[in-house]
Computed example of a mutant assay.
Amino acid sequence: MIRIRNFILHKPHGYLSQFIYEKKRHKKLLGELYDFPEGTMAIGRLDEDSEGLLLLTTDGKVSEMVRSKTVEKEYYAQVDGRITEEAVQLLKNGVEIGFKGIKYTTKKCEARIISELPDCIGEGRKIRDERHGPTSWVSITITEGKFRQVRKMTAAVGFPTLRLIRIRVGTLSLQLNAGEVIEVENFFTHKP
């Protein structure tokens, strides 16, 4: 019997959500953070510039279930400028973005302005200094996952994303520091 293994990772900025990169430029890969067993796959992806909660498994069925439209994914986005309640309301109702060369209206979602960040995020990496204007944070919870969707959503309402962190997948919340990995028996019964 093959043992299924599951991992929770706080993916740092600058890493690809993959184990192999076949192009010429060197990229930081997940295997540099931990000695994952052969056959481990990321459940969903976070692009190189995004950070936060990433689930990994050796079981394709678990991966398929977590990626389904029934599991919420919550992101904290640091945006350019002071996001307004009007922009948050637009996000909640769905906004038009481009996806694979066609226009797409996102599904309704949860969104709110964030005034205080959890310790696992803290100040994090410095995006820019105050000379370039203010920034603010917004939480966006979606069940779909189009390519770079949250970044496109904030840009569509006039507040481009500067930093993006996945903070929650289903009932699992980010509680690790950047680069930390833990192995869990089951994602859905894990208690921090």
Rank of each mutant, 00 (worst) to 15 (best):
R151Q: 11
I113E: 03
I121G: 02
L91D: 03
T141V: 14
Q175D: 15
I121D: 01
P118T: 12
C120D: 06
K146C: 08
Q149W: 05
L117Q: 08
E110W: 02
N93L: 13
P160S: 11
D129I: 04
L162P: 05
E123A: 08
S173T: 15
L117P: 03
G94W: 10
T154L: 08
T154V: 01
I142C: 01
R151A: 11
F99T: 02
T171L: 10
R166H: 11
K126E: 15
P118N: 12
S115R: 14
Q149M: 12
L162R: 13
T143D: 03
I102D: 02
V138D: 03
E110C: 02
L117R: 05
R151N: 07
T154E: 08
E110L: 12
A155L: 15
R128T: 05
E116I: 11
C120G: 03
L172V: 15
T171H: 15
R168T: 10
G98W: 00
R151Y: 02
R166G: 06
E144I: 06
G101L: 00
S173H: 13
E144R: 09
I102R: 09
C120A: 12
L172Q: 15
G122Y: 10
T143P: 02
D129C: 02
I167W: 06
V95H: 12
T161R: 02
Y104P: 00
I114S: 02
K92M: 13
L174C: 10
V157I: 04
L172R: 13
G124T: 07
V157A: 05
M153T: 05
K107W: 07
Q175V: 07
E110F: 13
K103P: 05
K92V: 07
T106G: 06
M153I: 06
V169G: 04
G145T: 12
L90R: 15
G124Q: 05
T135W: 08
S136T: 04
V95C: 08
V169F: 04
R112C: 10
K152N: 03
S136I: 10
S139L: 12
I97E: 01
G98A: 04
R125A: 12
S173Y: 09
K108C: 10
E96T: 10
A155E: 15
R148L: 04
G122S: 12
Q175E: 14
A155C: 01
I113K: 11
G133S: 12
K103V: 00
A156P: 02
G101S: 01
E96S: 14
Q175H: 13
P134M: 04
G170D: 09
V95Q: 11
Y104G: 00
R125E: 15
L91P: 03
P134K: 15
T105W: 01
A156H: 02
T106H: 08
R151I: 07
L174G: 07
K152V: 03
I102F: 01
K126L: 14
K108I: 02
D119T: 10
S139W: 03
E110V: 01
K108F: 00
I165D: 01
I102C: 00
R128W: 12
P134V: 07
Y104S: 00
E96Q: 12
R131E: 13
I121L: 14
T171A: 13
A155I: 01
K103M: 11
I165W: 02
I127K: 04
I165R: 01
K92D: 08
P118L: 05
R163V: 05
V150L: 14
A111Q: 06
